[in-house]
């Protein structure tokens, strides 16, 4: 019975994390912040629930299957969040006002300035760009 209660507590914890993720989805201001919120239950929530299952069925078969589930999640979640984040950054979903410092934009600016300087030097119709 005590094992059942421990499992139930762990599942409740998973529920709380999912709720926090959904609340974050509602309350955070822009796409990138919401993405931080959404990735959480997929990692820790599933870990906690897998622990609950492993407590109930402590056999090798179940534990290895759960290890597979967790490792697949650990591998695929960063991929999904990165792809969505990159798409969100590059298109207009990005709210610049929600960014305190944007070092990627600085790097892109620098690279473009270099590119323009190089192109100017080559004299490829750069007269139009002056002012």
């Amino acid at each position: 019975m005590i094992l059942d209660i421990i499992s139930a507590v762990l599942i409740l914890l998973g529920g709380v994390l999912s709720l926090a993720a959904a609340l974050g989805l509602l309350r955070f201001g822009d796409l990138l912040s919401r993405m931080h919120a959404s990735a959480k239950p997929q990692v820790l929530g599933l870990l906690v629930v897998a622990l609950a299952i492993a407590i109930q069925f402590p056999t090798w078969a179940t534990v290895t299957t759960l290890a597979i589930v967790i490792s697949f999640q650990l591998v695929t979640i960063p991929v999904a969040t990165h792809m969505v984040g990159r798409a969100g950054y590059r298109t207009k979903h990005l709210r610049r006002s929600m960014l305190y410092r944007d070092e990627l934009a600085e790097a892109v600016d620098r690279a473009e300035a270099r590119e323009l300087a190089w192109e100017r030097q080559r004299g490829t119709g750069t007269d139009h760009h002056d002012g």
């Binding site: 709380v16 926090a20 974050g24 309350r27 912040s33 305190y100 410092r101």
Partner: peptide, 26 residues
């Protein structure tokens, strides 16, 4: 670190101020 950061982000979701500006760091 996973547990600590999850608790922290969950706290952001629950607290009054939600979350402020983020940053893109290199």
């Amino acid at each position: 670190s996973l547990v600590h950061a999850s608790v922290e982000v969950a706290w952001f979701a629950f607290r009054r101020r939600a979350v402020g500006a983020g940053s893109v760091i290199a």
